[in-house]
Design a protein around this nucleic acid. Structure first.
Lengths: 202, 202, 202, 202
DNA sequence: CATGAATGAGAGTTCATTCAT
DNA sequence: AATGAATGAACTCTCATTCAT
């Protein structure tokens, strides 16, 4: 008797998955319901059994597959790692999540939408806020302990994360060869060294 | 006499300006020719006197108002500034150009287009490459002189620029309050300090 | 069961029929999709469920209702009729097929199209070739048997058929009263007598 | 002082000539005023100084360049030629006029128009009537003198002319290779022999 | 649940025609 | 006389959405 809801869930999921694929390839506007239906192996009419409209399908993608939810895999309490180990671990974590095919697909759709509907960005801020918050907390502690130079910790975290974010945008969304030239290892190395020690010879 | 070509240029310009406004607000796909015409104070048919198609109008925007052309205002010969002064100047330059209303409009259109048409990105890479190349050259010299720690200069520049780029994206395109909280001064200070000296207490 | 394909066929057929009527009255260019839809009792959009474009609808008319397919009702083996009976029968056959309302409609559309798109004429040449070939074969045999004067049989058949073709064009397509003045009987009589015996008193 | 009207005539003529070329190549509907203007070396607006509308330009073509007017070059009084010489001369005359580039152009436009506007055909009937009348008169005389078999002279002439007309249509308008295979000489020979003596061996 | 034929609103585009210059 | 920018009506075509089956 628990079959109907299960099937319903499956169909919904199936349609959402197809939509992610189609929207991320052609863009929401350019993709038609027929495209989505085809990709999902169903007929266009059926979409309307599970979603009120095409727009609604897009919202469902964000609500149920938020690209940022994936990043909530950070530890609850700040581990007591040395700054370098910590940054290295976070950078690696971010890169490996964020450069997965699934994530890139969602990010593309999300970014395209946010560009003309900034109110939707709030969905993203929450998750991003968590990452920022986590590192900010860590930084604050390390500043108090004197291990790290005093500065606005939130800004520092944003600059650090931004380096990575911009890299990923140029690599995955714009396919800039200049950015694609590096391995994760090189990027992590570079960003961690720069962030912690800076360019200047000491 | 010689007025006709001027008028033609004016109309073209007028339509392009209207299109930039409309496209940047609603997105290229969502914006209609009627919208553009209205914003330009003409009738939709007239667009086709100056552009072969809606797509062609979009291309004209990029070709004639390339958002990246604006950044080609870098000094010809690498000035012999100290790293801090240099970075500070570059960061300021970038921020002030890139956060202008006109530039943000173009960037929004450009980014949205590039997401689903990466081949168009090449237009952007050229200009971005110039900025990167300029700083890379500077960095290389300073590394040779021992003033700056040895590292992949291109990667360093990309990480530095990425910090700013991500900041601008979050501020202007996503209107992230977390990012909007800072002044140009604070951002420049933060990014320059971090980039040159790093987080670690020395 | 098995009804859906039937309905689909019906709609297609219905649209094609309407298109034949409309195109033959106003011409392909002058007729609008709205006209066709109205004549078919549907909305314009539906045409695109069955045909890729207006042009495609035109092609479908020719492919599925080829005006020349109708003339493929010639006897398989050359019957051993005397020349007069044979010509009389062929002339009658041609006239009765070719002066039907349906045929005239198709011919009008076809001719109009061929005038500016001679490549399309090949569709017609095939069927016309069959009729010509059939009579040519007959003529050749009769020339060999000495019953008919030696001459280029293909040319002879074309001239004979041309007499009829021109008559039909002037009657049905141009409605020339001079040509409409005659009955089928009179035309057949005239063309057969002239073709076989010529004008000269013998 | 007779210059202005002359220039006007020239411009009109120039536009009409261009229109004949353009209409005969693309068809009246598919050809645009811009096409015509370009072909005439003027601008579209100027057409409206000489013609009330595009339609009007088409009418002017027919009125001033009637394709059938060209055929009015027949002798006033029936010459006393033997039937064979006469038919041969007429057939040659018709073919050489009617297969000229200028004539074919006009005929194409005319035929395309007449297909959907049979009332316009009357323009053509007059001229065609003259040719028919001429030969009909000749035939009647020869029938009375017993040289030619008694029959409906008008029908005979139409069948004779139809053979040629159909040949020309297939050659020039449909470019049927079957018809293009013959020279004028062969066609004249064939049609005259057939018309006068018929197919049957005597 | 599922289909896909059908609709209707509206998009991009074309072009005959006008008219200020 | 001549231009060509400008208009507006109409066209082809697309597609989200509905609904009878």
């Amino acid at each position: 008797m628990a079959r109907t809801p299960k099937v319903v869930e499956d169909r919904r999921e199936q349609i959402i998955d197809a939509a992610v694929r189609v929207f991320s390839e052609k863009g929401f506007e350019r993709a038609t319901n027929k495209d989505v239906a085809q990709a999902a192996g169903i007929t266009p009419g059926l979409i309307y059994h599970y979603f009120a409209s095409k727009e609604d399908l897009l919202k469902a993608i964000f609500e149920e597959h938020s690209p940022l939810r994936l990043m909530r895999s950070l530890p609850e309490n700040v581990p007591d790692l040395a700054p370098e180990a910590m940054l290295r671990w976070v950078a690696h974590q971010i890169l490996s999540i964020v450069e997965s095919e699934q994530y890139v697909r969602l990010a593309r759709i999300f970014l395209a939408e946010v560009l003309y509907n900034p109110s939707m960005a709030s969905v993203g801020f929450a998750a991003m806020g968590e990452v920022v918050g986590f590192l900010e907390h860590y930084l604050t502690l390390k500043m108090e302990s004197g291990e790290i130079r005093s500065a606005d910790p939130a800004l520092m975290v944003q600059l650090f994360g931004g380096s990575l974010m911009a890299m990923v945008i140029r690599r995955q969304l714009m396919q800039d060869p200049l950015a694609l030239h590096y391995t994760h290892e090189q990027i992590v190395d570079g960003v961690v060294t720069m962030t912690l020690r800076g360019w200047l010879q000491t």
